[in-house]
Design a protein around this nucleic acid. Sequence first.
DNA 1: CCTTGACTTAGAGTTAACTCCAGGTTGTAA
DNA 2: TTACAACCTGGAGTTAACTCTAAGTCAAGG
Lengths: 120, 120
Amino acid sequence: MKISEVSEQSGLSIDTLRYYEKIGLLPAVNRTDSGIRNFNELDLRRVNFIKCMRAAGLPIEVLIEYYALVQQGDDTTEARKAILVEQRTQLLARMAEMQETLDLLNHKIEVYENAVLKND
Amino acid sequence: MKISEVSEQSGLSIDTLRYYEKIGLLPAVNRTDSGIRNFNELDLRRVNFIKCMRAAGLPIEVLIEYYALVQQGDDTTEARKAILVEQRTQLLARMAEMQETLDLLNHKIEVYENAVLKND
DNA sequence: CCTTGACTTAGAGTTAACTCCAGGTTGTAA
DNA sequence: TTACAACCTGGAGTTAACTCTAAGTCAAGG
């Protein structure tokens, strides 16, 4: 699978995919004889997982750390799980903050709808 | 109210408060004769509103635009409301993405808990 | 008065995460 | 076989949002 296809499928730009490989977030992707990237099924799944995590605000650094442990294999499962649990905690905190903002926004909009308030 | 107190109360750094004033997100705050900032109740409310919006990811640029309309006063209410509605839409979209990520994270963690999977 | 800590400014530096560029190679359709 | 689009690399540039620095002024306690 060519990089353009992966880009289209994942919604990440081609530059971003190359960037992710360069910094080690993606493993060195297989190449054709002439040096063109050839993503496999596993690469694709990883790209999509990363896409999802990044969309929720998980830092690249954390994902690199996570995949370093995956790479290491032999019983890093506890450490990996710890990372995921920690990130879930932070994600929940962000979601709670956003819910508060949403409530406030809803309230403000309602006020505008009722045209009660002119300035604020 | 001194900048240090506003900082403490709001959780924004002193530098950030000065930065917000510099770029026009906060209006020119009143000063003592010797030039020291003296935040009033309205400033404080605005700081807290901004803090809340920023925490949910609303761009500074949008908030500046919003307050420019507030400043303008005379029937910019429709435009203001439109901004808030648009930002609410985007916020809901982000929250939905985060919910997806949360689900995936929960699933992964569960897998680790059941120690079914060793690598992924 | 003197020190010390909080305040001021303009402007430079930082960080994360891309995004773009120049200059070169490859694959494919006419 | 010649265009021409898509690929490649290393490295520079961009963006948002701070964060820090230097050099100076101000306020309050001893």
